[in-house]
Design a protein around this nucleic acid. Structure first.
Lengths: 190, 190
DNA sequence: ATATTTTGAGTAAACACTCAAAAAATGAGG
DNA sequence: CCTCATTTTTTGAGTGTTTACTCAAAATAT
């Protein structure tokens, strides 16, 4: 039930953004009464917060497994691939990310969740880049990590704005090309 | 008067996001009645649209002048610097960009404006990168342009989320370092 | 005198949220 | 396996507030 409700929230936020998401249309989309939304999630903000929590958890589950590899290059590529995973990088979910990012200035809770997620993922990328400096000549591993992350974030923006003109596959190719460019010594392995 | 009203809209959207921006608090912030908002801008959406138009115009005015240069490298650096211009890259205005990007999935008008602005700027970057291929060995000028744009967009996201921990100067340095990395032959000139 | 701009009280609709009552699930004793 | 008391979940009509927007009248500019 809770999952079904959050599904409906995701649907509504993706379609109508946060200002257009109401208890009424979430309840209608989930096929339940408005009362049950408040019973389970306390408020509209609780509803949206849980939707964001689930989004961030899904995202973490997409990149976390790749961190088990001993090879730092595999970890870097794993992190990049996760950003363009078919389960993660959908039009709907990109719309969700941007909807929440659009509210971070007004709602500290969204900012906290987004920052923590971003930071956790960045630390993983940073460690992988620091480790990869052991097998390739890298002058600034932290800068490398920032550059890879910034690039993928920028591609998300382009995918979000350009719609279906810019596909997931194009994004992944661009992101991997960028990594090859930054790690020419290891390019043949990517 | 119109400018004063749009100032108030910018203030409110930055502080309370789009869902928290109402005719009442915009009117109050501008020191005018609600009626005059509707008289000048027809609707809340008209008000927000004009605020976005002004934001995009300001942005264009920040990068457009640098396109007059005959040196493509100067144009590239000019485009990057514009993204971190003190008049452009403020916390308030970043909040505005993300607020509108958060609504693009729901409101086609914001999507159209954002896409057109993004596209126009990308063409400028692409031409500069194609031209710079004449003075440096560049295998993929379009990829270069995408990479630079994606990187600055990603830095905007980090600045937006991380608040004052990540300053404009840090962003500019990171972006310029990235360009140096991509154009090693011309790095000493940047 | 006429046109433009501004006001502010007013309106209907939409909003998030409440709550008493109904329905469904749970689990212990027979 | 049933019974029934208790708890948990769900309903949907209802509440007060806020919302975007209207409009006649007043103020200001031309």
């Amino acid at each position: 039930m809770q999952a079904r409700i959050i599904d409906a929230v995701v649907e509504m936020v993706a379609e109508k953004s946060i200002s257009g998401t109401t208890l009424a249309n979430v309840a209608s989309a989930a096929g339940v009464s408005q009362g049950v939304l408040v019973f389970h999630f306390k408020s509209k903000e609780g509803l949206l917060t849980q939707a964001m929590v689930r989004l961030l958890e899904e995202y973490r589950q997409a990149w976390q497994p790749a961190m088990a590899s001993a090879d730092p290059l595999e970890r870097i590529v794993g992190l990049v691939r996760a950003d363009f995973d078919p389960a993660i990088c959908t039009r709907k979910k990109l719309a969700l990310w941007f909807a929440f990012w659009g509210e971070t200035a007004a709602k500290p809770i969204y900012n906290r969740l987004a920052s923590e997620s971003e930071e956790e993922r960045f630390q993983a990328m940073k460690h992988a880049c620091e480790d990869v400096a052991g097998i390739a000549r890298i002058s600034d591993p932290v800068g490398l990590a920032q550059s890879i992350d910034a690039h993928t974030d920028g591609l998300w923006l382009q995918m979000h704005l350009q719609g279906s003109d810019f596909t997931r596959e194009m994004g992944l190719n661009s992101a991997l090309s960028h990594v090859r460019l930054l790690l020419p010594e290891l390019a043949r392995r990517i």
